[in-house]
Design a protein around this nucleic acid. Sequence first.
DNA 1: CACGGGTGCGCG
DNA 2: AAAGCGCGCACCCGTG
Length: 509
Amino acid sequence: MHIVLDGVLRRPDDALAIEEDAPVTATILDDAGRPRAVETVEPGELAAFVAQRERERPRWVWSTAADWYPVLLASGVRIERSHDLRLVAAILDREWDGADPVAEHRAQLERIDRAPERRRLELLVAAESAGALIAVELRHAGLPWSAEEHDRLLTELLGPRPATGRPAALERLHREIEAALDGASVNPDSPQDLLRALRAAGLRVDSTRACALKSIDHPVIPPLLEYRALARLAAAHGWAWLEAWVRDGRFHPEFVPAGVVTGRWASVGGGALQLPHQVRSAVRADPGWVLVVADAAQLEPRILAAMAGDAAMLAAGADGDLYAGLVAAGIAADRRQAKVAMLGALYGATTGDSGRLMPRLAKAYPRAIGLVEAAARDGERGRRVRTWLGRASPPAGAAGSPQQARARGRFTRNFVVQGTAAEWALCWLGGIRGRLTAAFPGRWPSAVPHLAFFLHDEVLVHTPEAHAERVAAILVDAADDAGRLLFGSPPGTFPISIGVARDYAAAKP
DNA sequence: CACGGGTGCGCG
DNA sequence: AAAGCGCGCACCCGTG
């Protein structure tokens, strides 16, 4: 059964919600997709209506989870399944203005039904919709955050929080920088001014980026690099960040499913996907609880091997560390070199270490390398490429210069792998959610293990300590499920590494 | 004063 | 000059 919700429903944080909300229309469809009944629901009754109907395990069809689900969660109502019209419209390349969800839903199902790779597209639609639910649930649950630990860490690195102006450490480093430049005054926050000052001191530099400065031997460089790192910490994840984004011991970022063209998630507010390792010790489980952190090992190369059905490359990853497998196979001298070579193949490197290793990779793994080379050629010719489950790259603009064509090729080369890895991660997430819900009935999220963070190929579950072992097993099982769903691959094709600790930094060394 | 491009750097 | 992929955010600084 499907139930299509239509109406103007605003987010719970919108102060005008009550006055402006119009009644909601719920259209109940039978298994053939034909409308069987229409009900009108007052916004105030929506959560109760959904909770009641959820017992029949319908698939809820709505504009997008971000429109509807926050208010349901705020009322304590979770749902199992949805069809996210806005996200699916994007996958199907359909323009949709939000009008008539019933008609749009019917049109989407027809389109999916006629697709040549119907089973894959159905999986993508289900995984994308499940991801949309999870994104809202992640925001609702929040990432457990110790303001006390964060403040301790900032004070240790920057000095006590200043009432006004810059922290003491930055003032001291600024003075050291100017002293090293023979007293010349300089604004280290201004690349222009900094470049001028460095040149005036006789340094031949054309950029003030850290990687360019590191190779220079001059007394101004160490305090300058330290200033940069600390100034960034203060600006991006300092006390102001803490006040803006952490409430009641939780960081509640907004996740945006498919916010990236490849299908990866993006985030809005607080830089959730850029949390520096520096502050991760502030991510701290509640008393009696722990964090179970898991990440998929060498996900993108493994995805490429599975997509290409490259038996040699799959074998290189069979012992748990694909880069070590490349070394054992004689492709690279050491693990670091193996990693650089592999990433170069995925990104389209032509120069440097990784560029030089490409011929050896191509010889050892012709099917895998052939797949990304073909994607690159398609992109260079202005063609669109598709992920394993069928998400298409955006159309190319008008034909440009050869340089632009090559850039397009690097994009499409990476698109097929990054996009398919995102699909695997969605299936993993969906599997984790389903298994956690089945294994731990109870008040969500405060009483049961729950997803608390997601970072492309990494998840964090906040759980009572007693359940950590079961949660870890669920994360492994769900990774195996994801591999089977996408590729029919055996367990262990996508190994994950797991850490359990009170804080994020300790759980993920 | 707001806006937006450029720069730099955090993450995968 | 261009440069291995995808992002978000803070800051500077020129423009209107």
